[in-house]
Amino acid sequence: MATTRRMLVLRAVVEDYIRSQEPVGSGSLTRNHHLGVSSATVRNDMAALEDEGYLIQPHTSAGRIPTQKGYRYFVDRLATVVPLSAAQRRGIDIFLSGSVSLEDTLQHAARLLAQITGQIAVVASPSLAHSNLRRAELIKLDRGSVLVVVITDTGRVVQRTLHGSHQPGSDTLSGLSDMINQQCHDLSLTQAAERCQILADSSPEADTKSMLRILAAVFEEMATKEQTSGLYMAGTSQLTHSQVVSIGDLAPLLDALEEQVVLMRLMKAQSELSRENNGVSVAIGTETQTPELVHASVVTSGYGHAQQPLSGKKGDGMTDEPIAFVGSIGPTHMDYAVTMSAVRAVASYLTSFLAGTDDQ
């Protein structure tokens, strides 16, 4: 019974510290929570929690604040992620439904999530590795260059400019576009690269053969190269002007945001874990394995669906993986319940948006 009560005290300390950002004392806990025991008993419980590493006393005779271990216990005991209210969900739908393209939707999603949480929001474009080819166009430019425009089933639009002293004429490029759209429609970019290589090997025309091999390389590069430019962020200036992060913790956090490859790898891994955690994954402090985020927490959820082989090989069963992620980065004393709910709600909207795009 004492252990159960002690953990109720811990939860109360975390909730009060998140709200006030001031060390919490036994007297305020007794007044603000129905713990059913005296202030002295609560004080003893807090001392025990400090000995066990859940709380720390920053100053002598001051109240206590949660440690990373305390936050982890609190987050793990949030039995379910409280869904947003119907009004809040309608607000998300209204705010995002005015978007005119995938990029616009992702920018709006980042801005909205930052507004809801007061923290930094990060939204990634759908991974090209998990995208199928919807359409490709080859367009003749001046000075012998060719513009390759690739549109995927997830709404990504990617362009590459090919330079060379001798490129096929407009008619040849138009015919090539038609061939690719017939032969490669709805294939993954890796499969489209393989198909282009096969078409190149069987083509008798030198110009066509050369261009198909170049396109095979372009598709393969798109499928394998991580595109850090596909990150949409919002809320940085809002967080820097608030009082929720100390100056000492803010500089490393901003440095972490500059390292987009590291950030993308972290949040991608967390989004894959979110499937097993009520749709949301939370990394606290050192759990991020990123020194600059030691005083921050990262809440992430994947969105979209992609069927991938369980072992990486076809025929070994399939698993459903997210194709991108949405996340929020803030101080360890963030409001976890609100942040987790908001991240999951925005991810759910983006999943529905992509499903609608795919049906069009």
Rank of each mutant, 00 (worst) to 15 (best):
M7K: 08
L141N: 12
G27L: 13
Y349S: 09
G70S: 09
S61Y: 11
Q119W: 05
G356P: 04
V14Q: 06
I56A: 12
P58M: 08
Q307H: 04
R156L: 15
D153I: 03
L187H: 05
Y336K: 05
G164R: 06
D186R: 09
A110N: 07
V13I: 15
A283C: 04
E287Y: 03
V298N: 01
I323Q: 01
E258M: 10
M267Y: 01
T288C: 07
D201H: 03
M318H: 06
I247Q: 14
D358I: 09
L49S: 07
Q159W: 05
T105Y: 05
V122G: 02
V299S: 06
H333P: 06
T41P: 00
D316R: 04
M340W: 00
S274P: 02
G70N: 06
V245H: 00
S20Q: 14
T41G: 06
T290R: 05
A192L: 02
Q119F: 13
H185Y: 07
A193P: 03
G98I: 11
A217T: 10
L128R: 06
L106H: 05
P23G: 12
L29V: 08
Y54G: 01
Y303G: 03
L257T: 02
F353Q: 11
G356V: 04
Q238H: 07
L253Q: 01
G155D: 11
S246A: 12
Q197R: 09
L138G: 07
Y336P: 08
E50V: 06
I247Y: 08
E15G: 03
G330C: 10
G70A: 12
T339S: 15
A109N: 13
S274R: 05
P331Q: 03
S301N: 05
I198M: 05
T332N: 13
G63T: 09
M179E: 15
T236G: 02
A337M: 14
P204N: 03
L141C: 09
L212R: 01
T41V: 12
L215Y: 02
R64A: 10
M267A: 11
M1S: 15
Q68T: 14
V218G: 02
S311T: 15
C196D: 05
V122A: 14
G317W: 07
V157Q: 11
L254D: 00
